[in-house]
Computed example of a mutant assay.
Amino acid sequence: MLARLAVAAGYPVLIASSRPPAAIELTIDVLAHGAEATTASDAAGRADIVILALPLGKAVLLDGRDALPVDELRGKIVIDAMNYWWEVDGVRPDLTGDDVTTSEIVAALLPDSRVVKAFNHMGYHDLDEGPRPAGDPDRKAIALSGDDVEANDVVADLIDLLGFDPVDLGPLAEGAVLQPGRALFGANLSAAEIRDVVEQAAA
């Protein structure tokens, strides 16, 4: 869905999975026509902005191995769109603590990348139906959080170009409100409504 929105906005889009590029080409052609199938390392190396949208348990391995192309992601803006689902990821106490967000865990795996949390709280149906031009009174918002202010601004611009109002929540730790079970998870709201929810959650 994100690839389709990005293609529609005029971005060149690369898509990678755990399977060889040839195995996903038909799916991409049908669901995100105009995007290019490639490998994870190639996509990470060529892209200016990388979106991680895979099962969190496959990105954060229990044995400490690097599941992500860490070297290719150095210096890159990496958008963490992942959520922890025990049904998919298994029971992982390391991903459920209240002392650190899952995005902070991802950032620790990618210390030389510029990690921003975004695109995880809205369902794909709402993403599909939601894009509106700037200023449209029915435009919905996407919240984001990150420790790198300039990276946050770049992601905010991307959100705007995809047809949503960006709402910057501040540092990566503030993205806790976006996680499953928290106040903004599943939110399909306007920017003003998101700010109201965040204010109430902090009260």
Score class of each variant (00 low, 15 high):
D42R: 15
A176M: 14
A134T: 15
L161S: 14
P111E: 05
A16W: 04
A81G: 08
I15S: 00
V115L: 01
L162A: 02
A59N: 06
T101Y: 03
G90H: 04
L127H: 10
Y11M: 06
P20F: 04
L189H: 06
A53N: 13
N120I: 03
L161E: 15
E129F: 06
I24M: 00
G34F: 11
A107T: 14
G45P: 08
D98V: 08
G10F: 09
L162E: 05
A47W: 06
V106D: 02
V198A: 08
Q200Y: 10
R114V: 05
S18L: 08
I51T: 12
L61G: 07
V106N: 03
A53P: 02
L127W: 04
V70F: 00
D136V: 11
V91I: 12
P137D: 11
V60Q: 01
A173H: 14
D148K: 15
D89A: 00
A47Q: 10
A173W: 11
H33E: 15
V167W: 03
D99P: 00
F119M: 09
E36D: 07
R46I: 06
V154K: 07
R74Q: 14
L189A: 11
A192N: 15
N83S: 07
G186Q: 08
E199Y: 05
P137V: 10
A173K: 14
A107V: 13
I28F: 00
D71P: 01
L169Y: 10
R132E: 09
L26S: 08
M122W: 07
V13R: 01
G163P: 09
I51Q: 00
A173T: 13
K140G: 00
D157N: 13
S18Q: 12
S41L: 06
L26D: 15
Y11V: 10
A118V: 13
D63G: 05
D126E: 13
P93S: 06
G123T: 14
V88I: 10
I15V: 15
A203P: 15
G10A: 08
L62W: 01
L158R: 02
V154R: 13
L127K: 05
V154S: 04
L73T: 04
V167E: 09
T101V: 02
V100Y: 03
G130Q: 09
D148Q: 15
A8L: 08
